[in-house]
Design a protein around this nucleic acid. Structure first.
Length: 415
DNA sequence: TCTGGGGTCCTAGGACCC
DNA sequence: TCTGGGGTCCTAGGACCC
């Protein structure tokens, strides 16, 4: 049998919903939808999908369309734990993998026959299903883009291996917008050229692709034709030796009622800031550049950035600057619906130096305070301790932060 | 008041410099 | 003096992904 170099792609089947079902077997066979009220469906079981639930559908519409649906809030800690376990199972079989997202990974399988690959994928699939109780689909092919199409080909619990013989039958009829890397605007352009399927696209000559597209689209075209461009490597499509560190950390949220008032908006920003700083500390990272935005009722984003004099992961060092820059983006006649904060230009935390007289600087002292905050948070849950400036939310929701916490006590740090 | 939240990368065009 | 021209750096925003 002829051997070829295969790349594997693993994709969780309705991952968040599958984990919810694995955690609570009474949900098995039910229409499970993950998402919070007044928001949209982030994931749903295949039973819910069969009833017409679609990605991004507002929860109120889900409830209207299938009243029997069970709506559950998302629980990222569990998803991360299941993700870890799933990836370690795969690593047992194939060595190193490239994690692409919480429920997807790639691996280079080396030179193998079609049958060897198909058997391997089936064994791994059985292993994941029996150990974790969640469904996964596998694809394999000569390139990453083809492997990704293959894993999508038959879902749930699919195993699809693409080789030269079956390639056209698997991919030719796939709508062009389903291809990894071709999004809304690329699809619109291709449709305008009369290209609707992968088959249409790969039959175009190279000069035409070169004339009409920039490099990323040409790379996708080559990968779809079976020519390897991307190798299995770092976090992204472009290879890298190891898993890349986080480049940015953001926290965003929409809220209602919409508001134009300064203080509630600043409180939201302060909460975002606390959240991103806590995550930065948990990754042992600090940042020098901070972006924040407020989104108006027309979905337009108004953003500004703050440069910090020194790297930090302590909200107190940053909030005053956000307050200062806030007026640049805020218009008191406008209603706003969402806000967010992003930390970027991250680096690993450098050990705090004491000054010449043996005094730790203010940042160092604060850092110790926040170490304690993080300990409390991991013990009692998010929001156990928060900045004074984050405390009051909207007037009609004051003290919400207390209500949702069954805690022995609450701490407040003055700001 | 249908339209979440967390990421990465690319590009056009402005600012600035010589 | 009727404002050329090239380089670099930076930012906002778009596009894409899950």
């Amino acid at each position: 049998m002829e051997k070829t170099n295969y790349i594997l792609h693993l994709d969780g089947d309705a991952f968040f919903a599958s984990v919810e079902i694995a955690k609570n077997s009474s949900l098995k066979g039910k229409s499970v939808v993950v998402g919070r009220d007044k928001s949209i469906a982030t994931a749903f079981s295949y039973e819910a999908k069969a009833l017409g639930v679609q990605r991004g559908m507002p929860i109120f519409m889900v409830k209207k369309m299938c009243p029997q649906a069970i709506i559950v809030g998302s629980d990222f800690r569990s998803y991360e734990l299941y993700s870890e376990s799933m990836f370690s199972i795969i690593e047992k079989y194939v060595g190193s993998i490239q994690r692409y997202s919480i429920d997807e990974c790639f691996a280079d399988l080396g030179m193998r026959t079609f049958e060897e690959v198909a058997n391997l994928l089936k064994r791994m699939q059985d292993d994941v299903t029996s150990q974790l109780g969640i469904g996964v689909s596998f694809g394999a092919g000569p390139t990453k883009v083809l492997a990704k199409l293959a894993s999508k080909h038959k879902k749930p619990l699919g195993v699809t291996v693409i080789n030269a013989e079956n390639m056209s039958s698997v991919i030719n009829e796939v709508p062009i917008g389903k291809v990894w890397g071709i999004g809304r605007s690329g699809t619109a352009f291709l449709h305008a050229q009369g290209i609707n399927t992968v088959g249409n696209f790969i039959s175009k000559p190279e000069w035409w692709i070169k004339e009409n597209f920039s490099l990323p689209m040409r790379e996708i075209w080559r990968e779809l034709r079976g020519e390897k461009v991307f190798s299995v490597g770092g976090y992204n499509r472009v290879p890298d030796e190891c898993v890349e560190p986080l480049k940015s950390i953001s926290d965003t949220r929409s809220f209602r009622p919409f508001t134009s008032s300064v203080e509630p908006l600043l409180r939201e920003l302060s909460k975002h800031l606390e959240a991103v700083c806590e995550r930065a500390r948990s990754h042992n990272l600090e940042s020098r550049r901070v972006h924040f935005f407020i989104k108006d009722r027309f979905m337009r984003i108004h953003s500004a950035e703050v440069f910090l004099p020194a790297y930090t992961n302590v909200p107190h060092d940053i909030m005053p600057q956000i307050r200062k820059a806030f007026s640049q983006v805020h218009d008191s006649d406008m209603l706003y619906r969402a806000s967010g904060v992003t930390l970027s230009e991250m680096r690993s935390v450098v050990v705090v130096q004491q000054d010449f007289f043996g005094n730790a600087d203010r940042t160092g002292a604060l850092r110790n305070v926040f170490k304690a905050v993080d300990k409390l948070t991991s013990k009692y849950g998010d929001g156990a301790v928060s900045l004074g400036s984050s405390f009051k939310k909207f007037p009609n929701q004051q003290a919400n932060i207390f209500r949702r916490l069954p805690l022995p006590f609450h701490g407040v740090i003055a700001s």
